[in-house]
Computed example of a mutant assay.
Amino acid sequence: MAINFLSLEKSELELNDNFLSLVSLCRKMYIKLATMVDNKIVTQESLDKMEEYHNRVNESRRDIRDDCIWIISKDQPRASHLRYIIAVLYSIKDIERMSDYAYTISRILKKEKITTVMVNRLSSLLGKSIDFYDCIIDVLSKDDLSEYEEKIQSMFNSFRIDYKNFLTNSIELFSKTLSPSDVSQFISYYFNFSIIIKYIDRIVDHCLSIYKNFVSVKNR
């Protein structure tokens, strides 16, 4: 069966637009989360908004997945076209997990009443993860991703160093803040806090994964 390249090109353009919309929607979640952290408060209204974003991301991911399957069955893409669709399929899973992390962080901050000391220290690390996300989004629009590999890897390594130092410094800070009688409270607070910062670390991992998903598509 002959491939209809006009139909395939149209389908791919629509898929690209939908994928970029999903990427943008997930970013809105992180900007909303950063605002809550900066304001040191998670209201029920803010949490409801995060849930709305989270649901929209999940719905959009399912729609894009179905579109990918339909394009493959209808247009029978080959070579770079097929690689692009596969890259999108892998990446929407990354976006879904990033959305899950953002929503879970907001719920922890609301439910567990994390101390002000903990919240104050989140802004910088969260901001750096958003910067990395923005860099990935920008790079995806380029024709050749290989020339950005060194920059991406350097930003990733830098974040990892900051993450490890942040974790170590936080332990020292909390141990100085709480008295010996507050050991159980310290454990509870630090456990919740460590979950949050690990999720921020995983966000950056998924950003790097998205970049790698498209390297083979763009560099052929």
Rank of each mutant, 00 (worst) to 15 (best):
M118S: 13
T168H: 02
H206L: 13
Y84T: 03
M36K: 02
Y211S: 09
S179R: 11
N58D: 14
L89W: 03
L8V: 09
K218L: 02
F166I: 00
E9K: 08
N39V: 01
V88Q: 10
E147F: 06
I92V: 15
T115F: 08
V23R: 09
L33H: 07
D162S: 05
A79N: 10
K218S: 10
D38M: 14
F5D: 03
I3M: 10
K40V: 09
S21I: 01
S60R: 12
I86L: 12
D205F: 03
M98V: 11
C68P: 06
I86F: 07
F191M: 15
I41C: 05
G127N: 11
K10D: 13
I130W: 03
L173F: 10
L125Y: 04
K110F: 15
D48Y: 06
N165L: 07
D48Q: 12
L13H: 13
D182N: 12
Y103C: 14
I114E: 06
C207H: 05
I137L: 09
I137V: 14
E96T: 13
Y211G: 07
R61P: 00
V215H: 03
K40E: 14
I203V: 10
N192P: 08
K218N: 07
I41M: 06
Y211E: 02
Y163R: 02
D63M: 10
K40H: 13
H81A: 08
M118F: 13
T43C: 07
V119G: 02
F186A: 12
R202F: 09
S146L: 11
T168D: 04
Y190C: 01
L22D: 04
N157F: 06
S24T: 05
S141Y: 08
D67P: 00
R61C: 02
D138I: 00
S175P: 07
V217P: 14
I195Y: 07
K212M: 11
Y133L: 12
F174V: 12
F159M: 11
I200Q: 04
H81K: 05
I196H: 05
N157V: 02
N192L: 04
D17L: 15
D182Y: 08
F186H: 06
